[in-house]
Design a protein around this nucleic acid. Structure first.
Lengths: 212, 212
DNA sequence: AATAAAATATACCGATTGGTATTATTTCAA
DNA sequence: TTGAAATAATACCAATCGGTATATTTTATT
């Protein structure tokens, strides 16, 4: 009579539930992520989220506990979007210098679609959250440190195979490249001047070239 | 009978009015400026402004048309605060290199009181306002460009008296120094790591040293 | 097709938002 | 000291805030 064990039924229900829930959750995140990146956390209202998704409060709050949860997921989503482009472009490069130059290219806006609306989510989140939202601030800080470690690792490999000179300080250069790029994004975005961006990216390239 | 002409009475009343009004306006700006710099424009409420000043709405709205006006004045105030420290320190320096190094020193946090609570107001305002508040965005953009011009002018003088080599591009270096410093402030603030800040400021110094 | 559950919509909540009109108080010249 | 103007405090406004409880519709399983 009983075709399925209780365990199986439970598992299927659970799995179905999860996959559907995850689908709508993903939908909400995708639609709200650019808004959080443009208006910021404090500037984005639940009404904005409803307008962006076409869903009602009940639907949104059925999938997320509160605005915070959506904002956190939206940041992760925005970050992943940039990361994917960087990783994809970096795989094409063999040399350490080539890999480092990917950052200058991606953040120098040669790949416009790399960034979500509103610019670099790490930068935006760092500035808004550093004094007001501990969890978001730590997420932004982790992103910075991870990025720095990534660059430092590439530099170290370049030193190891004599592509770069031995007396460079990988950590110092790595965090400086991060700062220069992020500062460049801010400057270029707020002034809207393309030549500012290209000038700063030239400095990034010089910083990389000075390694060898 | 009439000791004073109508014009004189009007002038005195006007002057008195202005000076008193300016005093309370100044008070409101001074007290709210750090809050705008920490919480941002969208994150700062009229209640916050009342709490910071100890004044009521009637008093605040009697001196400012709306929240916008206070925010604009607060930005100018915060900017001036940083500018004053920079200018004061720069007067002590004679050489072009010495003058440029002032930025590394001031923004490298050797003068902690130079910045209002919340960090660099130009950076904070640029990030929040670039997509949401045209007037504030332009103020931030003007600050960036003015700062860049200031640095470029110093470099040009350094080139003119052979302190720097003739083949440097003052504009390119100037905007890059701005970007590196602002990016450095963001990185240092969000991570809280002092060694990040010192590493980045070392790169600023290198950028300046490379001029000669 | 029936049913249970999951997803979404509706309607509402108290609190807070930015802002205003009015009243009370302070300031200051005459 | 007084009277008028300047300033600040009070009380109130509609709108919106983030969030919740309940009702309705969709979805999936047997």
């Amino acid at each position: 009579m009983q075709k399925y064990t209780n365990w199986y039924i439970f598992a299927m229900l659970f799995a179905t539930n999860m996959s559907k829930a995850e689908r709508t959750k993903q939908f909400i995140v995708e639609k709200t992520a650019p808004i959080f990146n443009v208006k910021g956390y404090a500037g984005t209202s639940v009404n904005d989220m409803m307008a962006a998704t076409g869903l009602t409060k009940g639907s949104i709050y059925g999938n997320f506990r509160n605005k915070d949860d959506v904002a956190l997921a939206a940041f992760d989503h925005n970050r992943k979007k940039v990361d994917q482009v960087v990783r994809r472009e970096m795989e094409k490069e063999k040399s350490a210098k080539g890999k480092l130059m990917v950052y200058a290219k991606v953040y120098g806006n040669f790949y416009k679609d790399a960034f979500p609306e509103g610019g670099c989510p790490i930068l935006n989140t760092a500035i808004e959250a550093d004094d007001t939202h501990a969890v978001l601030r730590e997420k932004a800080a982790d992103a910075i440190t991870g990025w720095k470690n990534n660059i430092a690792g590439i530099i170290q490999k370049g030193v190891a195979n004599n592509e770069f000179s031995a007396d460079v300080d990988p950590e110092q250069i790595a965090i400086s490249i991060v700062a220069l790029i992020e500062g460049g994004i801010m400057v270029a975005k707020v002034t809207g001047k393309l030549n500012y961006r290209t000038a700063i990216m030239k400095s990034v390239e010089k910083m990389i070239n000075d390694l060898s």
